[in-house]
Amino acid sequence: MGDERHGDPKHSGAVDPVGQGDVNQFTNPGLPPHPPRITDTNPQAEKRAERQVMVLFIISVIGTVLFFFGYFGVGHTGIEIGTKLRLQNTLIGLGTAFAMLGIGLGIIHWAKALMPDHETAESRHEIAPESQRAEAQEIIEQVLEESGMKRRKVLRNTLLGAAAIAPLPAIFMFRDLDRSQLGAHAMVDRLRHTMWSEGVRLVRDPSGLPIKASDVQLGSAFHVIPEGLNELHEGKLNEKAKAVVLLMRLPKDKMTVSPGRETWNVDGIVAYSKICTHVGCPVALYEQQTHHLLCPCHQSTFDLTQECKVIFGPAGHALPQLPIKMDDEGYLVAQSDFQEPVGPSYWERG
């Protein structure tokens, strides 16, 4: 088969027909003759190489000096960042570099030019000589015999059983890695709840100022947190990681609203979770002409006009919508919490 594809086997370059390789082989000619180096034959070249090595070592010394010049000469901490800190970093770095390269290149040049360059051969030893193996086997058998492991089966089996379960406490010790002291169900249930609830105002991230419906013009995007988040002392980032919302206004004719969500927007103003349903990056990129939301981490793209359905990328479901309304003063507030867990999917999400 091979021969036909690769031409006449009698000519060079032909594929050897399978299984018919000639067994007779060339013999190893041994190490080739060793030509002397210029430093071996020419004393002047040898002197020159010696000087070169010395110069390299001196360069190393200069490098160390350069380091100290950068360290003490440029200034103390808190120096101007763009110029002086950069200069210091460069001087310290190049100083170190020259100090190291000088030594390294010097030693290697020394080895190459002045130390003997005769290649020599060393023979390999058998890795596992048979005599050793036999001896080891004997020893192991003797040890097993003397220990009684083979005869006293009850002892062996109870020991194995005990050893198998003894590490379990060590594993279960890690149960309290979650510091919340919650039971298993309550632990997982946290993922379903955020700070949003009825009447919680939508406020700007990070200033905490409330947002009037009239502030939200077509084409604008507000990064929103729930009112009161900034005042939290504990777990602020945990709450923020679930509660951040993106607020935009859509032209009414571009919106598709599914049954049950008719009242979730305020005159085209919609609020969606900013946490990507893929693996949780903030989906913060709003294209105001196409009304697409893009996640910069893995490029999941959500279509705002179709209730943030996934139209590209690795996300598996739409961004959850936050039902909003207007309060008496004209500020935007939540109608309730999200109706589904925000962020990445997980086993218990269902």
Binding site: R204, I211, K212, D215, Q217, L218, G219, S220, A221, F222, M248, Y286, E287, Q288, Q289, T290
Partner: peptide, 13 residues
């Protein structure tokens, strides 16, 4: 002004 696909950041935002 929010040129092209950039959102508008008006003074109330």
């Amino acid at each position: 002004t929010g040129p092209q696909n950039m959102p508008v950041f008006n003074d109330s935002n």
